[in-house]
Design a protein around this nucleic acid. Structure first.
Lengths: 338, 338
DNA sequence: CAGAGCACGTTATACGTACAACCTGACCCT
DNA sequence: AGGGTCAGGTTGTACGTATAACGTGCTCTG
């Protein structure tokens, strides 16, 4: 009489092996050394295998009071970059017996825009990108151990933060372009409310402003190739001397800028130098290949996970921003003698 | 005496509101109509709010015997496309009170390569891309309701499948290029063991082979821009008359092919027509913009989730492949008169 | 005015697991 | 012989929730 098609429990395994449920738990939990005879343990293992037993995670989580699962909240723009962050975080998590669940902050997915309503999984902690703005209030409400990625260290009110050294990346870009002789800059800024984008703008202005004759104009666009194209065309239609260098907050924006420049009949890098930020695959797919700042997404994810493990453990996560690296390719050159 | 920093339970709320735990469960579970006075319900709600009560999901899942969470297994190449699949699936899931957890099949992430070891979440069902090959055996072992995306309907042994009409997409591409006058094809195939890529090859050969003088050569590359570039260069170095049309299994491959053609001094579309498949943002970022087949990733995800809901419900999911659409852009033109 | 019915709750229980605490017989040592 | 030790288990319980089953008074009706 098959008792319906319900999954076997540890008690079923116990019955089949002729032992108590506790013995099954001990054997399968690898805590049986010196408590259960090897022969019995083997019987239990065999019975579990035959019945196709899988432990009920809900029950285990309830019993243990923890889930060994953490949530990674990323912005809707699920890209290579955050795929890398996930990979790094998942690797470290796996080393410590943890799992990582991804929550891409939705664009109109659920009514609640609440990661916890969506990923119903019971969680031990959260890593959240500061770009996933929609989800942040819900996250705070949950009162779980939290690590923020790329968030204002001052403004995040006590939550641990792990940051890329974006300021240094912008410094390197500015230094590179200034060194080539550029003075008039157009900054194609990501239209996303996030501290990291404020840093980009501030740092660029500071560097360029410190040089005689240096000037920065700003255009804004959401991180989308089409929007970037439109914004760039509009900005370059403005009166006054044309900028010679176009600094983009993101490689995708740079790809849009390329399109705008093609339509305007301007050549990269002869008429306009262009830089990006991220070093996505896209950066080498476009022609000419893009000078950009390489961000180590995987390392970012690893550091985020390590920080979360520290927080969950009551320790203080190690500080220090993650270094970034300028990658010079074919999209930057000295401005043409005017 | 704060009882440590442990999260409040429904019993704590009950105590604070002066009612029984059962009453709390009724009120917060919205099952109190006619069982609890409005004033009492209000007291309970207020107490819950004040204590910051969050139900323990592990306990609820255990009690209810279900989690209202499903797993979406996607291949490591976390791209725009699967981001779209997720969005569609999550939307439908949310409509039915379900959550979706993403599992990107890892490239060397965990030792187990087991989605269930990683996403420790207790699950009600699984949607899996056939490209996430590493994870498939683990998935079968779990014996959960399963829907496969883009899988061989015959070979998937009873699991429900939802497929894009890739064969028709390839037919449209072949028809378009043949109509322009192309006869010698190079097929840049994705080096991924998945039924959908077999379909591409088979269908292209069939169509082109049916035309007098039609021939198809094949090159293989992993889905990466650099690998695609190398494979294309190698293939075009082969002796014999050069193909005039390059059919790529994926937009990323096409981007790699563009690079190869640039290095060989061949112009698109004058010397070589190129087509892709996916219609990613990348397709319009490269120059000239890519003729490709648009796949509706979100619809794909929606249909996948609907099918899974049907399976979990004991119903038969609706059949029918998802239509795809050829998008003609600047990368295809008639072959130059030879 | 009996008792039916309703409004408003409460008590008890089960979900499947992990583990603390307890038990039992065999063997050993003095 | 008496007790101690140890291997090899078992019994019992708690985790926090949802809900079935069971009271209570009170009102209404015939």
């Amino acid at each position: 009489m098959a008792p319906a098609s319900t999954r076997p429990t540890s008690r079923d395994v116990a019955r089949a092996a002729g032992v108590s449920q506790a013995a099954v738990s001990l054997v399968l939990g690898d805590k049986w050394r010196g408590r259960v005879a090897e022969a019995t343990a083997e019987r239990v293992r065999r019975a579990a295998l035959e019945l196709g037993y899988r432990p009920n995670l809900a029950a285990r989580n309830l019993r243990l009071g923890r889930t060994r699962t953490v949530l990674l909240v990323v912005p809707a723009l699920t890209t290579e970059f955050f795929a890398g962050v996930y990979t790094g975080a998942a690797r470290v998590a796996a080393e410590h017996g943890f799992g990582v669940v991804l929550y891409p902050s939705p664009e109109g997915v659920g009514p609640a825009r609440n990661p916890f309503a969506s990923a119903q999984a019971a969680l031990d902690g959260v890593i959240a990108s500061s770009m996933a703005a929609d989800a942040l209030t819900a996250i705070r409400g949950e009162a779980l151990p939290l690590v923020m990625l790329d968030s204002d260290p001052g403004g995040s009110l006590g939550a641990a933060t792990v940051n890329l050294d974006i300021a240094d990346g912008v410094r390197q870009v500015a230094g590179h372009l200034l060194g080539l002789g550029h003075r008039r800059f157009l900054h194609l800024a990501a239209d996303v409310p996030s501290w990291t984008f404020e840093v980009r703008a501030r740092e660029l202005s500071a560097r360029v402003g410190a040089v005689p004759g240096g000037s920065v104009r700003t255009a804004r666009a959401p991180i989308s190739i089409e929007d970037a194209r439109a914004a760039t065309e509009a900005a370059l239609a403005a009166p006054g001397p044309r900028p010679t260098a176009l600094v983009c907050d993101d490689d995708k924006l740079a790809a849009g800028a390329y399109k705008a420049l093609r339509r305007l009949g301007l050549r990269v890098p002869d008429d306009m130098s262009v830089t990006g930020l991220d070093d996505l695959a896209l950066a080498t797919a476009i022609d000419p290949e893009l000078t950009t700042v390489r961000l180590d997404a995987e390392l970012f994810g690893e550091r985020g996970m390590r920080a979360l493990l520290a927080v969950m453990d009551g320790r203080t996560p190690e500080g220090g921003d993650i270094p970034v690296e300028l990658v010079v390719r074919g999209s930057t050159a000295p401005p043409r003698a005017s």
